[in-house]
Amino acid sequence: MIELKNITKTYQMGDVETEVLKGISFTIQKGEFVAIMGPSGSGKSTLMHIIGALDTPTSGTYTLDKKDISAMTDDELANIRANTIGFVFQAFNLLPRATVLRNVLLPLVYAEMGDAERIHRAEQALRAVAMPEDRWLHHSNEISGGQKQRVAIARALVNNPKLILADEPTGNLDTKTGEIVLATFRELNEESGHTIILITHERDVAEHADRIIHIRDGSIEKDDVLRTRHKKH
């Protein structure tokens, strides 16, 4: 479903050219749960931005869901983000003065559909992350960190994305809450067959995935398959 071929990314800073990604190639199948791991400065964030259609590579091709998105315009990229990708961020990025439900509904504002359909989808997404129903109308700054991240996951799920991209999703959480969030990802992967890419610098977190792609200095250092499991979907 995801195919990267020889992706490079170069930043120009004055006269200095910095090559952040030096020819990255890999393939991720539908239904995989993959961690991209590397220390800070390894280029994993840049790689995530390219996979997440937030940025385009300097060279190489990136095919997502049979579409070549390496040379798309801003609006085309926005469409890909709206329909194909669900983001989960380290800092949650919820609208603080809006309710939980309103936050989950936000991506659907940019997708044309009726109100009833929107509410239905948001409720489904909130149930999928086991968010207690009595919290749905709370403002998002009134709930705990673990709940915030689950709301953020529900927001990522609400437009039925083909790919969920989580950038350090446990970075702002304590270990125990982090475990719950990671368990939620595993459940979404095993129960509903979502394709999930987890970006992290922590080995403990990365080991929740089935496969770890190690990045160092802009290149793939190692591609470990931890386990192959029989998928339900």
Binding site: D74, A78, R81, F87, N93, Y110
Partner: peptide, 10 residues
């Protein structure tokens, strides 16, 4: 930034 990440066009 968030709105753009979740699909808002310019």
């Amino acid at each position: 930034g968030l709105r753009k990440a979740i699909g808002a066009k310019n």
